[in-house]
Design a protein around this nucleic acid. Structure first.
Length: 918
RNA sequence: GGGCGCGUAGCUCAGCGGUAGAGCACUUCCUUGACAUGGAAGGGGUCACAGGUUCGAUCCCUGUCGCGCCCACCA
């Protein structure tokens, strides 16, 4: 093995070997375990959030595969309607074209081309991350099978009356010129204004004042509303307003919606351009005047002067005209929530159109019940509150989009606007007895991307066919997802799964936090803080990183700032840390927190961990080169101890996986590997293997423990660090007596029985002995190379027995010559002291140690002990504590007091001796 | 206006009704045959604040302050 861990050298070839071995497909007769990947955008690239999430899913999958489950991690990608269409449109714009220049058919062809060209990126990235997805089952939301599922679902829902077509207000994106669902509209508070207009009464007897944040909509006003109880206006209800500019007469109506305390207590009503006003309009049967075109310019329903104006132009014009007429009462600054499209970021307009909707309440009810009764469990569980909150107030889902890229709605229009829904035009004709002469045209619109995503857990397994995979793997085991798409995706999958499969789509939903940058900022291109996960794996130079971050910006003026920040943060670019270090970092970050701050320092730390593991393995391989052959083995104290500690670590790692606490699993594995296996056991093993006195039985015991522990440790770590563990395992396993072509197919370690208390006790004593001596060495600045004498004062028989049994270890790890017990009448030389139980470990000063320094050191310890003692005594002095606390706790406290007292006595004696020397 | 979350070492975060933990950073010593991507030792925290429950609270409850996220139709 090379001296230094080199991820580049080992990661490249391993994945291909796994694929060749066919390790990724579910195997065996074990229980089914299935995760469906949240499909990334087919034309996108994996960002840190994906890499994190994929690491979690791969770790879970590998873990369950090693447990013997038939584990399937179902891969696939999403066509991502709007996002993908926008990318291709932008490409066209670069060529001076629009999609309309190409026409629908050629445009869609072009998108497919782009998909073919860039669609392999995700797969390549996943492979670099070590993702053990079953590539033979790879799916795409627009592939033939999934498209069939989409059509089937649509038709069935329509036939049941759960999908309908309706003319009503939708969120209209005037830039993308499509309807959006409520979820795709993001409202943010912005600084705006509140304009107060005077609306003259038609009879000339005065005016009412109405306030608005969108003056241009007044051209579509069809009423003014007041509260029915409002004394100020009661007498005006039923009378009319002469609407300025539009020169129409509109009624004054009374409606409970109006808040008399806000503004003047009068509200202008524009049913065609405001969701609330629409409802008021319905209640009062008001006319609906649509004043906007698809691109939010004023249409012919407004007076000539305003026609063709953009909505914001029109706003200025309307305000100016009101002012000119002396009808502008006042303008004040006003904060308001502005709805914007999540893709275009343009202000969304409520607009009256024909759209397709899913009647959601009947689907939501069973989906709520499934979580209420525990058939689906959120982890952490408080996310169910968020889920319930949304599901109980859910509104019908607008699923039609005026795009070209997506699943075409399976509806056909005949003469007289008759609507036919079916799986194909042929089926429609057959079902409705329409001859070939009847002209039919298919709906131009496509479905919301999330409609196909909602079917993902069963469509990928073959639905609507009843495939063996569907029977075996549905319901899937767990959904791993970020909380940002609970509504978009999780809730809808639950509804559709229950609807079409009559069962939940997954039993658990593991909701993880979102990856943010070091400062807690969301990673985004425009912030310039994006890190490509593969750049951490492979490394990247500073210039390349700067280039990557500053090209293709939507707002090029940000480039300079991004470059500066990047140069400051990564003066040397990013080093190549390898996949395993990155994965282990992700696992360690996977706390229950919502915001997961990504810190490269941590990756470096875990790269070092990989190196540590690598070198530990190197040592084990070198140390076990010599085979003492078959024969009885004898386990040393250290051998027994490390086996017990491995069991404890195994339990902790298993618990971590079971509770979706990969951070705790990673921590347990890390601490065992470094602090127990490497820091202690490997050193202790040297005391046996490098001792001329050790017999073959002892050598066998240590050799087998070294190999066995390392081999099991590799399996313990494998789900988190697949590459390095595979690489080492292939060398270690044969020597450890494990057969198999790959660690992927080896069983996950199981914890054996309870550890023997005597082993743990004695090992604790050995460690404390060594630590006591090391502390003197460290604080007295004695070089590690200096080997000194150690004397034992007041050693009991058990102490002496332990010294005898563990002499080799003590000498080696504390770097002392064989400890010698002082005779009863022998007076100790000037020495530094460490306490171990009733015994004093003395390090004779002999020119090594300064009296003053040792006095100071012991004095500090005494102070600390005195504080502890005082606290413990106060506790025991409290009668109600002794009375009420559990006996074990009281006993423990009493033990501590006794211990402190004894140590203080020893310290006092020692300090006295030192004083007499001074 | 509702819902949720967070405030623990300089930084990033675990933890937990009974001696405050880790990584990184920091100080000192050390190239000892696995590893300087390392080893040994060390410094550093009234666990945001105030009440309450309890024998005992960093942990449970209430409130306050600060920070964040999500949902929501006030013109």
């Amino acid at each position: 093995m090379d001296k230094t861990y080199d991820p580049q050298a080992i990661e490249q070839r391993t994945y291909a070997r796994w694929e060749a071995l066919g390790c990724f497909a579910p195997a065996g007769d074990g229980p089914a375990y299935c995760i469906v990947i949240p499909p990334p955008n087919v034309t996108g690239t994996l960002h840190m959030g994906h890499a994190f999430q994929d690491t979690v899913m791969d770790a879970l999958t590998r873990y369950h595969r090693m447990l013997g489950d038939a584990a399937l991690w179902q891969p696939g990608t999403d066509h991502a309607g709007i996002a993908t269409q926008m990318v291709v449109e932008r490409q066209l714009n670069g060529e001076g074209l629009t999609r309309h220049d190409l026409g629908r058919e050629r445009f869609v062809e072009r998108v497919w081309q782009w998909k073919e060209q860039s669609g392999g990126t995700i797969a390549r990235q996943l492979k670099r991350l070590g993702a053990s997805v079953d590539w033979s089952r790879d799916r795409f939301t627009m592939d033939e099978g999934l498209s069939r599922a989409v059509t089937e679902a649509f038709v069935r829902l329509y036939d049941e009356g759960l999908i309908y077509r309706g003319k009503r207000l939708v969120n209209w994106d005037p830039v993308l010129k499509t309807a959006l669902s409520d979820l795709e509209v993001l409202s943010e508070e912005e600084e705006g204004r509140l304009w107060c207009f005077r609306y003259p009464l038609a009879d000339g007897s005065g005016h009412l004042v109405v306030a608005t944040t969108r003056p241009e909509t007044m051209l579509g006003d069809t009423a003014v509303a007041v509260h029915p109880e409002d004394e100020r206006y009661r007498h005006l209800v039923g009378r009319t307003i002469r609407l300025p500019l539009a020169d129409r007469e509109i009624p004054i109506v009374a409606d409970e919606y109006v808040d008399p305390a806000f503004g003047s207590g009068c509200v202008k009503v524009t049913p065609a351009h405001d969701f609330n006003d629409w409802e008021i309009g319905e209640r009062h049967r008001l006319p609906v005047i649509n004043i906007l075109d698809a691109d939010a310019r004023l249409n012919d329903a407004v007076p000539g002067a305003y026609r063709g104006l953009d909505r914001f132009e029109a706003r200025k014009r309307v305000v100016a005209d009101f002012e000119a007429l002396g009808l502008l009462e006042k303008v004040e600054p006003h904060k308001l929530m502005v709805p914007r499209g999540d893709r275009s970021h343009t202000v969304v307009e409520p607009w009256l159109t024909d759209q397709w909707y899913v009647r959601i309440a009947p689907l939501a009810a069973p989906a709520i019940a499934a979580v209420e009764d525990g058939r689906i469990r959120f982890v952490p569980e408080n996310w169910d509150r968020t889920y319930f909150e949304w599901m109980r107030n859910i509104r019908d889902w607008c699923i039609s989009r005026q795009l070209w890229w997506g699943h075409r709605i399976p509806a056909w229009y005949g003469p007289d606007d008759a609507v036919y829904v079916g799986r194909s035009e042929a089926e429609v004709r057959a079902r409705h007895g329409l001859g070939p002469d009847v002209p039919l045209s298919q709906d131009e619109d496509v479905l919301d991307t999330w409609f196909s995503s909602a079917l993902w857990p069963f469509s990928t397994l073959g639905w609507p066919d009843r495939t063996p995979e569907l029977a075996r793997f549905y319901p899937t085991s767990v959904l791993v997802t970020g909380f940002d798409i609970i509504f978009f995706w999780v809730a809808r999958m639950i509804m559709m799964g229950l609807k079409f499969m009559d069962d939940v789509p997954f039993r658990e939903v593991y909701v993880h936090g979102l990856i943010r940058d070091h400062d807690g900022q969301k990673m985004s291109k425009s912030k310039g803080n994006v890190i490509d996960p593969l750049d951490i794996v492979d490394g990247i130079g500073l210039e390349q990183l700067v280039a990557k971050r500053t090209t293709g910006l939507m707002q090029p003026h940000l480039a300079a700032g991004i470059e500066k920040a990047t140069r400051r943060q990564f003066p040397a670019g990013i080093a190549a840390y390898g996949t395993d270090a990155l994965r282990f970092s992700f696992a360690a970050m996977a706390t229950q927190s919502r915001d997961l701050r990504f810190d490269l320092g941590r990756v470096e730390g875990y790269r070092n961990f990989c190196n540590k593991l690598w070198n530990a393995a190197r040592y084990v391989m070198i140390a076990t080169e010599q085979d003492p052959g078959e024969g009885p083995a004898e386990l040393s104290l250290a051998d027994r101890w490390i086996r017990a500690r491995l069991d404890a670590a195994t339990r902790a790692v298993r618990d971590g996986f079971a509770g979706y606490r990969l951070d705790l699993a990673a921590q347990a594995a890390y601490e065992f590997t470094w602090y127990e296996f490497c820091d202690w056991y490997l050193e202790l093993s040297k005391a046996v293997l490098q001792s001329p006195e050790a017999g073959d039985a002892a050598r066998r015991g240590t050799r087998r423990t070294l190999l066995g522990t390392l081999e099991a440790l590799l399996r313990l770590l494998h789900p988190l660090m697949p590459f390095i563990t595979e690489e080492i395992w292939c060398r270690v396993a044969p020597r450890a007596g494990m057969a198999g072509a790959t660690i992927m197919q080896a069983p996950f370690p199981a914890a054996a029985g309870e550890a023997e208390a005597a082993v743990l006790d004695e090992m604790r004593w050995v460690m404390d002995f060594i630590l006591g001596v090391r502390q003197i060495r460290g604080e007295m600045d004695i070089a590690p190379s200096v080997r000194f004498d150690v004397l034992l004062q007041d050693a009991g028989p058990e102490d002496l027995a332990r010294v005898a049994r563990n002499a080799g270890c003590l000498e080696r790890l504390a770097n002392v010559v064989r400890p010698r017990a002082l005779a009863a009448d022998e007076s100790p030389p000037p020495a530094a002291a460490a306490l171990l139980g009733g015994m004093k470990i003395l390090v004779p000063m002999a020119g090594l140690i300064d009296v003053a320094a040792e006095t100071a050191r012991l004095g500090k310890r005494r102070t600390r002990l005195q504080q502890e003692l005082a606290r413990a005594e106060a506790k025991l002095g409290n009668a109600s504590f002794v009375q009420n606390a559990p006996a074990a706790v009281v006993e423990q406290e009493q033990g501590r007091v006794a211990q402190f007292k004894r140590e203080l006595e020893q310290l006092a004696a020692q300090l006295e001796r030192l004083a007499s020397l001074g």
